[in-house]
């Protein structure tokens, strides 16, 4: 196990600003605090060479976990071990073996050519000449960096900069890489080249990757395992396939009716449909394949409603995750291992 996390909890004290002028004055005196559990009793371990997708809505605790793994945030309680080290107690030593990319930040120098940022990185991590040359060759091949090296970073597009940032973070062959939304705001082509790069590094050097993302195609294309977190708690930890099998049975039928008048559809609820939305001519019906099949629903609709068109849509990962986010409290947390 290269990463071991047990009962990890991080509690933040957030200042509550009181409302209004009177409130502002009262804030000058005694302040009120709100306790926020950003990460709540989280446990998981990751083997060498795994690519794990870490997914959850904004504010779920993904970045907080990553910061604790990086050693720049001290846990309130629980155990973390990365390569046998406790990150926040051995921050510098830990830093030598990890690579970190926060999609919203850059560690590149803005006004000078990109190559200068790389050479600084090389000195900071004491990368041997041979490794450096080799990596530059491989990275340039996959990420197409050649043309960018001599341009000042401020002139690069977001996609070019992100490619450069990721290359920079992996230049020293880190054994573990934490990627926090590395494909945010990028176009499909750049996303694809970044995914190829992550996969290649994983193949070539057995790099362990923890990938926090909102982009489900990142997860589908890279990760065999996913950890779903919401409100600081793990909701699912297991293979992507199992997630799909368990929660992927949701389907949606989208209908268009002739007249915009509301239609009485309550019968559908009695046969097992989970949600109905009606909006003028458009109706969408959500159901689980395990409870009711599409023919039963459509059969009834054909007889009772005048339809123009209909579509049956299979659940996307996004939908499964939404089901997870909504449907699970901490009591029925499940494990897919």
């Amino acid at each position: 196990m290269v990463i071991r996390v047990e009962n990890l909890t991080k509690v933040f004290k957030q200042r509550k600003g009181r409302v209004g002028i009177l409130g502002a004055f009262r804030d000058l005196g005694k302040r009120e605090y709100k306790i926020i559990k950003a990460v709540d009793n989280v446990s998981f371990s990751i083997r060498e060479g795994e690519i794990v997708g870490y997914i959850g809505p904004n504010g779920a605790g993904k970045s907080t976990t990553m910061k604790m793994l990086g050693g720049i945030l001290v846990p309130t309680s629980g155990i973390i071990e990365v390569n046998g080290l406790v990150p926040h107690k051995n921050r510098k030593e830990n830093a030598k073996h990890i690579g970190v990319v926060f999609g919203q930040r850059t560690s590149l120098w803005w006004d000078i050519p990109l190559s200068e940022s790389f050479s600084l990185q090389r000195q900071i991590y004491r990368i041997p000449e041979k490794t450096y040359q080799e990596n530059m060759r491989i990275f340039s091949d996959i990420l197409d960096l050649d043309k960018l090296l001599h341009a000042p970073v401020r002139q690069l597009s977001l996609g070019q900069r992100m490619r450069a940032d990721i290359a920079c973070a992996l230049l020293h062959n880190p054994s573990i890489v934490y990627l926090d939304e590395p494909t945010i705001g990028l176009d499909v082509v750049v996303k694809e080249s970044i995914r190829t790069f992550i996969r290649e590094m994983n193949n070539l050097r057995s790099t362990t990757v923890l990938l926090a993302t909102h982009d489900m195609s990142d997860v589908e294309k890279l990760c065999s395992r996913v950890i779903v977190i919401n409100q600081g708690q793990i909701m699912y930890d297991g293979s992507l396939d199992k997630l799909r099998n368990t929660y992927g049975n949701e389907e949606i039928i989208v209908l268009q009716t002739i007249s915009p008048e509301p239609v009485e559809l309550s019968y559908l609820k009695t046969i097992g449909v989970s949600a109905i939305e009606q909006n003028n001519n458009n109706i969408s019906i959500r159901y689980n394949r395990n409870n009711v099949n599409s023919t039963a629903i459509l059969g009834w609709l054909m007889q009772n409603v005048k339809l123009v068109d209909f579509k049956v849509k299979e659940a996307q990962i996004e939908d499964m995750i939404r089901v997870l986010y909504k449907g699970f409290s901490n009591k029925n947390q499940i494990s897919g291992n």
Binding site: W109, W110, D111, I112, E116, S119, L120, Q123, P152
Partner: peptide, 17 residues
């Protein structure tokens, strides 16, 4: 070495202004 590299980068950066 990292600090010398940093110094060089700052120098190069300031030259652009």
């Amino acid at each position: 070495r990292p600090y010398i590299e940093q110094l060089k980068n700052v120098f190069k950066q300031e030259i652009t202004y």
